[in-house]
Design a protein around this nucleic acid. Structure first.
Lengths: 187, 187
DNA sequence: GAATAAATATACAGATCGGTCTGTCTTGTC
DNA sequence: GACAAGACAGACCGATCTGTATATTTATTC
């Protein structure tokens, strides 16, 4: 079954938003790239912001799905999975299409905390943090919440250092630090 | 001596760029806010991008100046200064005007690595990292480069978690993790 | 006080923005 | 074959964008 026009639109928008940013990507470029008519877009979405929100939702789904599979396929032991987070991160960062975290970027362009787009970005981080907390709990960390938050800091920091400063080995540095923190959390 | 029109322009632009972002801040808004004429702007800057670059340079100067003073006024012992980084960070994040890191935001809006604005953002992180490395070296860490990079990850991660997810205590979590990493680096 | 330089106001150009409207063409169903 | 739904093309709207041109006012300096 062919993807619906709506899905195709969201996929195309997602790609362009990640590559060029939100403000820099005009409606017309999305339409030209996807071959969809303008009226079709506005039949499915009330505004560009709604399209952005749909793209963020899809990205959140895809990313977390990929991430959880990547972590869990790399290690069975819960404690090893906490480190596998950074192996997955390294794979992502090293990929050809890496262009930073879409949600960090969205928060940058829609800075006010009450903007629905910013709220969606915050929710994404909340969900990823919840997953890391699950891993930490399963591993039996003394303070799973604290450990999860610390590992999140390393992960987000690695994304930033890789994207902004071009540090290709950021995830490897993060993994080394994570091992120290994990060891300490179980000592 | 009154600040020059040029300086006033850069200061106003800086404020608006931090608050609303780069693409979302039009030339006209900067002019209206600063009370400067358009021709004056284009006498001093060839383009908006040049104004952005000037704003980034000023921000880099101001921020690193503030940051180094904030760290060094909080602790004398080099090893304590490594932790004071996160106390300074906490003060910044808790401030009323905190709106994320301007350089992370710039890299988000100007995503291509060869864009001069992106390059300027990368340079800022490089300089901050160099300072942290100095602190780590002065403290006599076994591997100052590695420790500095790890602490940078925590710092950038804290900025992201605070701005995107609204985690007001991100710097405190980062400080806790930093203590573990620092202790480990001297063990 | 005249000359000079700088900043001003204002209008405008040309492009692009998000979004609307009209009308045509295709497609599937009865 | 008639009909309805949905996607298409493309003109169009007002607003806004960066950047330019012109002409006036202000301030400094000799």
């Amino acid at each position: 079954m062919a993807p619906s026009r709506r899905d195709h639109l969201v996929d195309t928008a997602l790609e362009l938003f990640i590559r060029d940013g939100f403000h820099a990507t005009g409606i017309d470029k999305i339409l030209a790239e996807s071959g969809v008519a303008k009226m079709t877009l506005y039949k499915h979405f009330k505004s560009k912001d709604e399209l952005i929100l749909s793209a963020l939702r899809r990205r959140d789904e895809h990313f977390r799905n990929w991430f959880m599979r990547a972590v869990e396929s790399r290690a069975q032991a819960p404690r090893q999975r906490l480190l596998a987070i950074f192996d997955a991160l390294d794979e992502w960062i090293g990929g050809r299409d890496f262009n930073g975290c879409m949600f960090i970027n969205a928060s940058a362009e829609f800075a006010r905390a009450d903007n629905p787009i910013h709220v969606a970005a915050a929710e994404h981080l909340r969900l990823v943090l919840a997953y890391v907390r699950e891993l930490a709990t399963a591993a039996g960390a003394r303070d799973a919440e604290a450990l999860a938050r610390e590992l999140m800091l390393l992960a987000e920091g690695a994304i930033v250092m890789a994207h902004v400063a071009g540090q290709a080995d950021a995830a490897k540095n993060a993994r080394r630090a994570a091992r120290t923190l994990v060891d300490h959390a179980f000592a």
